[in-house]
Structure formats: structure tokens, C-alpha cells
Design a protein around this nucleic acid. Structure first.
Lengths: 201, 201
DNA sequence: TGTCTTATGGCATCGTCTGACGCAATGCGC
DNA sequence: GCGCATTGCGTCAGACGATGCCATAAGACA
């Protein structure tokens, strides 16, 4: 994932980054140990050796510490550059496929663990849906703009919503199978169903 | 909506039904007045003249008082009777179309008001997504069963997820336009996009 | 070193939600 | 009607998430 070298800047900034990472790591460890509901923000703060108040300065909510995702911005960035002549679904496939290898190489296990936690915890699953909705909205807007349609165009929204839904299915399946099958293959399968107009093979 | 006459049964049961309805009505009224966040469970309980503790005996959460929906079971029921030879999307269209007139006639305004509240309140929007996920899962299971596939079949899940997504888009559009366009027409438009493999017209 | 900025901790508070317990209303067999 | 079992409800106490406020400590900068 060729994380940019990002000079640590000042001591202050380095500390902030460190605290943030500490909080997230301890949180995920504790969640895995005692479950999400069985872990309080106080526990996490204590483990990271900061006050509970400070936890909420880094994360807007207990959920946020799990949902923070560094890949969304990347995906957005690429979406914005879609060629209007390219069929929407094809574009989605291509972009995801181009992002996947990097993610796979570097963060596969971390993402898998986090996903297991998310899908095993109703509250988190619901929250991640909210996140996907945001993504969907942005995607719909981009699609509408690229194709010269009104910002709230129904067809653009459907394309966006359906693409996200297909993607989500593939990922869920992947997580459910403990990351055993190739995610790229599952995504292809899912998008194939969509492209042939939702008929069962 | 030809609500079954359902004899009121015992006095106790009638009281329970009454309290439940009271809580829900006052809640929706207060939410409309002061907003969702601006209304506390204590307010609702006071308006309905019960203790806050009692509120939670009727509704599992503050959200639940909004999300309670009497149509889901109906939709489920019809889904279960799908003919395997019928294309899945066509079946969805047909079932929804058959349900719509009744809902439209009786509860259109109530549903519209509730939907406005839900989509205008991020927390509720997220919660309703969770509800849709449940519906999606059930639909996927039914589809898989009807077509003789494994319960977690990816294609069945994609079909379910995508159908629900398309439906959701149409409804959101309908609500955003204040119920002005015909919901049936929007649903047709949305499903058309899906059936032609997600190409923009 | 001295000063300005900013991150943090502590405290208080609100709101959601849950468990425990006792009381009162209802249902029911007589 | 009467007495007993059932059950719905209010009260109390409390955990937990989340936020505002203020004092203080740590880092930035000259």
C-alpha cells in the first residue's frame, strides 16, 4: 500500500498519531477479547493510558474507533476521474480491481479481523451501513455529474446503490468464508449477476 | 389495508394496545415538533402519562418507536410463495405492485411523514438500513430456497441486495419529492435500470 | 527563558437503557 | 362475588456513552 513517507512533522503531531493508533489497537484487541459490548470506553482509555475524555477527542464515538477506514478516500478519488463513455459498472469493477492487490498485500488480515468484528456486532454492522450510504451518495453524485444529469437523478442513484450493494455482498461473503476465496473472484461473480440483469445463472 | 377485525381480547390486552399506540403517536408528534434529538424518552413518557421505564417495556429503544412497521411481515409472506420459474426481479415488482395500492390508499400520508422524519435524522436513517438488511437476508434465504441453492449462495444474495437497494432508491426519491410522483412509476424506473444491467438510459 | 498555543485531565451533567423490587390491577377458578 | 396467581407498572439505583467547561500541563516558537 506504499504508505506515503509522511514526515512525522512535529513532536506534538507524532504523539497524536501515536495516541490515535494506540487507542485503536487496544480497542480492537479488547473488543476481540471481551466483545464490543463487554468493553467500555473507560477500559480502552485505561489500556491506552489516557483519560476517557481524551478518547472522545480522537474518536467521535465508540463505533468510530472501529469504522475508521483509510481506503474510502482513495476509492472516492478514483471515482471522480471516471470516463463518461465507460459503462458505470465496468468502471467500478476496474477501479476496485486496481485497488485490491495493494490492500490485499498489506492489510488483508487486519481488514479481515476488523470485518469479522463488524459483521458479528449488529450495532457496528448498522453503523457500517451508514458509512456505505455516504459512499453511495457520493458515488451517485459523481456519476450524475460525469454523465451530465441532475444531482438527484434516480437512475444514477440506482446504479450507485446497486453497485455498492453488489460490492457489499461480495465482501460479506468473503468475510463469512474467513477470507478463504479470492475477493476479486467474488466481486466478479457479484457484478456478473448485476450486469446480466439480475438473473440467476 | 383491510386490517383484520382482531377482537380486542381481554381488557389487559386492550390497554396494552392503547398504551402502545399512545406512545407512538405522542412520540411522532413530539419528534415533528421539537425534532428527534430534541425530544427525550422522558418527554414521550410524560405525554403518554406513563413512566419512562414503561416506555422501554413497549419499545426496545427510542428508535424503535419510529421504525415499527406493520408491512414487512406482509411482504415476507408473499415472498415465500414465489414461483421458481418466475424471474426474481419480476416477482419483486409484481408483489410490490400488488401491495402498493392498499398502502397508498390507507396510510400514504402517515408513511410519508414518518419517512421524512427517518431520512431527515441520520440516526434513524442508519437504523432503517439495519432493518432493510434484515429484510434482505430473509429475501436472500427465500430466493435461495425457492431456487434450490445453498442458503448463503452469493448470487441469491446479490439479487436480494440489489432488489432491496433499487426499492430503497425509489422510496427515497419519492420521499424527497414529498410524495409528488407516483411511487409505482419510480419503482418501475428503478427496476428497469436494474433489469437492463445497470446502464444509464 | 518566557510566552503563546494546544492537548489533556477532571468534573459535572444529560440522556439512553437495564436490573431489581414492591405494589396494584387484571384474569380466573371457585 | 372471593381469593389466588399472573402480570403490568412505578420507583429506585446505576452503568455507560457522550458533551461542555475550566484549569493545567506539554509542546511550539521567539
Amino acid at each position: 500500500m506504499t504508505t506515503a513517507p509522511t514526515t512525522p512533522a512535529s513532536l506534538r503531531d507524532r504523539k497524536k498519531i501515536r495516541t490515535r493508533r494506540l487507542l485503536q489497537e487496544h480497542a480492537l484487541r479488547l473488543f476481540a477479547d471481551r466483545g464490543y459490548a463487554g468493553t467500555t470506553v473507560e477500559d480502552i482509555a485505561a489500556a491506552a493510558d489516557v483519560s476517557p475524555r481524551t478518547f472522545f477527542r480522537y474518536f467521535a464515538s465508540k463505533e468510530a474507533v472501529v469504522l475508521e477506514d483509510e481506503y474510502d478516500p482513495l476509492l472516492f478519488e478514483r471515482m471522480r476521474r471516471i470516463d463518461p463513455r465507460e459503462p458505470p459498472v465496468g468502471a467500478m469493477r476496474r477501479i476496485i480491481a486496481s485497488l485490491l492487490p495493494d490492500i490485499y498485500a498489506e492489510d488483508r488480515d487486519r481488514i479481515l479481523a476488523r470485518s469479522r468484528l463488524v459483521y458479528g456486532t449488529p450495532e457496528l454492522a448498522s453503523a457500517v451501513n451508514g458509512q456505505l450510504t455516504g459512499f453511495e451518495r457520493l458515488l451517485a453524485g459523481t456519476l450524475a455529474e460525469v454523465h451530465g444529469r441532475a444531482p438527484d437523478d434516480l437512475e444514477a442513484r440506482v446504479v450507485a446503490a446497486v453497485s455498492v450493494a453488489a460490492m457489499r455482498c461480495a465482501i460479506e461473503q468473503w468475510v463469512a468464508a474467513d477470507g478463504a476465496p479470492d475477493l476479486g473472484g467474488l466481486l466478479d461473480q457479484a457484478f456478473d449477476v448485476v450486469e446480466r440483469g439480475l438473473t440467476l445463472g
